[in-house]
Design a protein around this nucleic acid. Structure first.
Lengths: 245, 245
DNA sequence: GTCAAGAGTTTGTCCTGACAATCAGACTTC
DNA sequence: GAAGTCTGATTGTCAGGACAAACTCTTGAC
């Protein structure tokens, strides 16, 4: 009921964003319980000394995140469900780390190779052009988990093997000033080949989860193409998704 | 360059939505080419006889969809990449239909069953309570493609077998006035059991793609829990996802 | 020629105000 | 008692204006 909200007008952080974060924190903390009404926008604006559009912008951000639901004539309610996060472009590294499993990485290859037709098409370069190839084996709890093979255009990023073993590829890219925008993914399954079985300590023919992903930055340039193979017995993709209204 | 834009003020469709749809259509059609500037918001508003907030709302909708990128001091650009759609909560039926493969469905079971512990937990009902069980086999091009098993709480929807064979489950739910809000999914892989192999015309031990999904409506109520099995040789999940800034 | 400063452009944020559409509940009427 | 009807509450849409922040390009200085 108390629900302390306040904004700092001297801060460079936008007002709507401050409000949005405070509301999200209150939901996370349980101060705003699922199903509870938020109180109407006009009052809220008045109490905070903000205008209604600003308050609406803050609320809209949380509606887009799936945390709130608005109903005309009724009000804005906290959605009561196990919303975690609406599927981000996360790396396996981050996923594992978030799950509390300290991931380890072994770089198997880090070279320049001429692009095959498939890679060239995905990255938008000419066939035969040199591209970076990074092949890694990722472990969790000391067990091999996945074989990750990534292709990157040249001249985008310095790929340092020690760094690749210490963190994830996406972090390196973000750190290099590349703003990831979207990705096209394909998730399937197939039986393990002899080489894969050897590498992942599985039997030949064991089911593997496969993922192909092309990632684009905000200029539409393909910045990465990866074909990955996961041990199905050890890993599954978990995600939350929102229906866009 | 011409780019015919106009809004109909007598229409009940919101102005920002009319504009947003026209812009999206122009991008789809190729009239607005990737990388091209959209022209500044003030002018655009003036030319259309709209206010700037309305134009901004229209543009924002497309930015959220990943079709446009805004840059302060530069302008709004059409993102040039193969954006299709940012992963909707789509049913297999819709997916197949969109791919031009006429899907067929055979209902194997449509009964009431007591909920197991797993189903009860997913749907938020008591263990042993009756729930609907719908088991279907889905075909594409006359070939079996997937086994779909769905559990639904009672009293939500009339599950008519002929209707289930004619369309997808999600369409039925939407038609019954249920507004889908979010879903929690898990995608994995495993080897086919003897029963699954028989049903899907695969060999025992063949890799299968598995998906579990719990769907929630906008009140946070679980409205469906499904465990599905796809022939990995015939199907893969394809989707596009956006990085939320 | 190179680098820095400044001007102009464009989006980002925020305000005030107004009316419309929709929903829930109380009220009226039959 | 049941059905329709009205009323109040709340979000949805739209206008117009103002200033701030970030980017690009030109201009100027060295």
């Amino acid at each position: 009921m108390p629900l302390q909200l306040s904004v700092d007008r001297t801060s460079p952080v936008p007002l709507y964003f401050q409000l949005s974060q405070q509301l999200e924190a209150a939901i996370e903390r349980g101060t705003l319980t699922p199903g509870s009404l938020l109180g109407n926008e006009i009052d809220l604006a008045g109490r905070l000394g903000l205008s209604r559009p600003t308050v609406r912008q803050a609320i809209q951000a949380l509606v887009d995140k799936g945390l709130l639901v608005r109903r005309r004539g009724v009000g804005t309610q906290v959605v009561h469900s196990q919303v975690k996060r609406p599927l981000e472009l996360s790396s396996l590294y981050d996923d594992l780390e978030a799950a509390g499993q300290k991931p380890a990485t072994k770089v198997l290859r880090n070279t320049l190779e001429p692009a095959t037709a498939e890679v060239a098409a995905a990255l938008g370069v000419a066939e035969g052009d040199d591209v970076h190839l990074v092949e890694r084996l990722r472990y969790a709890h000391g067990e091999p988990m996945a074989q990750l093979r990534n292709y990157l255009p040249t001249g985008l990023l310095a790929l340092d093997t020690p760094q690749l073993e210490a963190t994830g590829l996406y972090r390196l890219m973000r750190g290099a000033g590349i703003t990831l925008h979207s990705a096209r993914q394909s998730v399937g399954a197939r039986a393990a080949t002899a080489a894969e079985a050897e590498l992942l300590a599985e039997a030949v023919g064991a089911p593997l989860l496969t993922m192909q992903r092309t990632t684009f930055d905000d200029t539409g340039r393909a910045v990465e193409f990866g074909t990955h193979v996961y041990r199905a017995a050890r890993y599954a993709f978990e995600f939350q998704l929102l229906v866009r209204p």
